[in-house]
Amino acid sequence: MKYRIIKDKVAGGVMTLFTLLSLILLVAMAVGLWLKSADILEEHSMWNLLTASEWKPMRNQFGFLAFISGTFYVTGVATVIALPTSLLMAIFLTEYSRSTVRRYIYPLLDILASLPSVIFGVWGTLVIVPIVSDIIGPAVGTATSGYTLLSGAVVLSVMILPLLVSLFIEILGNVEIDLREASLALGATRWQTTKHVVLKKGLPGIIASTVLAISRALGETIAVLMVCGNLIIIPDSLLDACYPIPALIANNYGEMLSLPLYESALMFAAFILFFIVLVFNLGARLYLKTIKTE
């Protein structure tokens, strides 16, 4: 009899430990990356690192501005493309379509959601890059290789589409049917109802979901790296190359051990990425939680 109770206590202890360890992992990552970036922060001020755009590790110049702006531009443009598309699609699926339509659309979204990053990268080099270099480039009168900010953003937008659509469907589905019926009964069209009632009610959730999807897009590595050109410049136009932070880390990990500061700089890059993603993700989740409990 005693044995069983002891077993229960031990198991409980072990499981508490497992759960705690997973929590500690989050803290450990922050602390670990921060400690690793201490070396570079000793030599250069944080402000300098974040606002300088000269990146020459061999000459002790570590400016992250090009990478930070690359990350934000590529994610920003991707969001601009993906947001209206996914919102319209979610509205169509929740407000307009019959369930038979949904039965055919969901598997498509599932496929999109499950394909690995590198496959989107291959698709980008095969389809998007040629379109940009052969059609869009000449159309606006710029010679471009096709490996551009725009290509990266298009690929990235396709990758976050399924996440956005599924988050939006959940948000829109939570709006009470009574509200819609009240609006329809007053003679509003379906779109008017959607615009004035459903979207208005769902707006906070839509914003939070978008932030969540952005946090996912910020860390996307291989697919973007394969199509965005990877030149260390601050992009001026959509047809410039760009160099996001994840690509910086992935491209240089092989050489980073050659210089102690180089490694520290890349770990600082990882820390920046971790920090931005953490803030976006945590903020969006906490906000979504308060909406849900209301």
């Binding site: 990552m29 969540l212 880390i249 990990y253 990882a270 993700n281």
Partner: peptide, 25 residues
């Protein structure tokens, strides 16, 4: 609820960051 939130956040951490962190460890 804190643990669940932490797992949500961990779910959102990019794999490149996991890679970099694991590499340093």
């Amino acid at each position: 609820s804190i643990a669940r939130l932490a797992f949500d956040v961990l779910f959102g951490v990019p794999s490149i960051v996991y890679g970099a962190f694991a590499f340093t460890i």
